[in-house]
Nucleic acid binder design. Structure first.
Lengths: 245, 245
DNA sequence: CGGCCTGTTGATCTGTTTCAATTTGGGTGG
DNA sequence: CCACCCAAATTGAAACAGATCAACAGGCCG
């Protein structure tokens, strides 16, 4: 069976279960949904539909009318911004539980694409706003999450503005390690669902530099690279020193 | 009379008027306070005190316990983050109406210092949180402002990660021009309250590069620089092209 | 008037990019 | 199931943007 066919089946299943996506949702605990009481969860359930994304599939484009809001349920989604001449900046990677499209304007401020296969939970912006109005606790959670994102963005600003390429990549790996730990995964055996270009565009260097630095870290015995999609942290403390803070 | 003495007097006046700082506040229209009904404004008034800052005076340090929240009323405040070896990144400049210290953690994620003389409105974090709980509309406004800040941070991430030094400075000037226009000021005659080092640390280049670029723009006839604290935009459209998007 | 801090300009140096050539590896079709 | 094919990743050499080092000018304050 081809991979595409598998996804079509998964998609069909998701549609079938649409009636109770929220109630059976794997990430109900970690998402903002956990703020909701049963009756509100039912209401959220009514306005939620599932969406399955192929690798590299676009969720929405920067500048599109922001009429839909998403919650990542599985996989990894990247946010990107482009300059007129094609230079690209990845502004962040989103994992299960993260909100997507929370622009409080009429247009999305960035594009969003699935890194690998990803599943999203989809809400109409208007209906979600209405739910927010009726459920201040939910809005409070959303505020908390946006605040988190802002703090992360400021860390990234420090990284991009003042760190060397070596410090940038070390910081990136430490950051992934911390996120893995938060999700209850091994903090030393890292999954890198994104490709080198994504990493490069995230930390503001060229792909070649990313590649050279991986090799350099490997030669220094700081990391192991079993394959392009996995990194083993061998000396986390050394990597933390390299990260510059 | 020395400048310091003048400020002491201003400070004393602020203290005297403390009873109705909010009701007489110049920026009541533009701040989140505009979401409040009269009785809530009175309540906000009770928990607000004024604070006057000397140039370069620190409001709080990164890592301090975040027990206080501020609103800028006059002047300009910069947010900074530092690396262990002293490299500095300015993460943003705040103007009247902007919130300061809105970290929803126990520690501030950045330091804040007055650029010139500045006035702030000060709230206890706990009491403000309590007010938020009772006034969802206020929380909604706060969410809107944090969302704005997040969008601005993502723009800055694009700038830092992918723009050339020339594009960075051009973007910075355009950004200042837009903010000036929003505040109802002349969008061509720009105030630069901050010094060259602040600009350099904001756009992630060296002071020397900032200086050279000002000279270059001046020689190209794109801007005029009557003195170090003022810039005149002579060819805004050319500057916009230089900004890269 | 003198000292100091900020800003500017010049000369050199270096980290990172760019250009170019391989190598690797996963997916597809025969 | 294997071999091919193309995209992704790596490695090397050359070029360059911007940093660093250093000297100097200007303005403000004591």
């Amino acid at each position: 069976m081809t991979r595409v066919a598998k996804h079509l089946i998964a998609d069909a299943k998701a549609e079938k279960n649409n009636r109770n996506v929220c109630l059976t949702c794997d990430i109900r605990e970690m998402a903002v949904c956990s703020a909701l009481r049963p009756e509100e969860l039912l209401r959220l359930n009514k306005i939620a539909t599932a969406r399955v994304l192929e690798p590299e599939e676009t969720v929405f484009y920067e500048g599109d009318e922001a009429d839909t809001l998403y919650n990542v349920t599985t996989g990894c989604v990247r946010m990107t911004k482009m300059l007129a001449d094609g230079r690209r900046q990845v502004t962040g990677f989103l994992y299960p539980g993260d909100f997507l499209g929370l622009a409080f304007y009429d247009k999305y401020a960035y594009s969003a694409e699935a890194v690998g296969i990803a599943r999203l939970c989809r809400f109409s912006h208007d209906k979600f706003q209405a739910l927010l109005r009726d459920c201040p606790e939910l809005e409070h959670r959303v505020l908390g999450q946006v605040s988190n994102e802002l703090a992360a963005a400021q860390d990234q600003i420090l990284l991009l503005g003042r760190k060397s390429a070596r410090e940038k990549l070390a910081s990136f790996l430490i950051h992934l390690s911390e996120r893995a730990e938060l999700r209850g995964n091994d903090s030393c055996m890292l999954d890198l669902p994104m490709q080198r270009r994504d990493i490069a565009d995230y930390i503001g260097v060229s792909v070649e530099t990313v590649s050279r630095l991986f090799t350099s870290f490997k030669n220094d015995g700081v990391i192991g690279v079993p394959d392009a999609k996995h990194v083993v942290l061998l000396q986390t403390n050394v990597l933390e020193d390299l990260a510059g803070l």
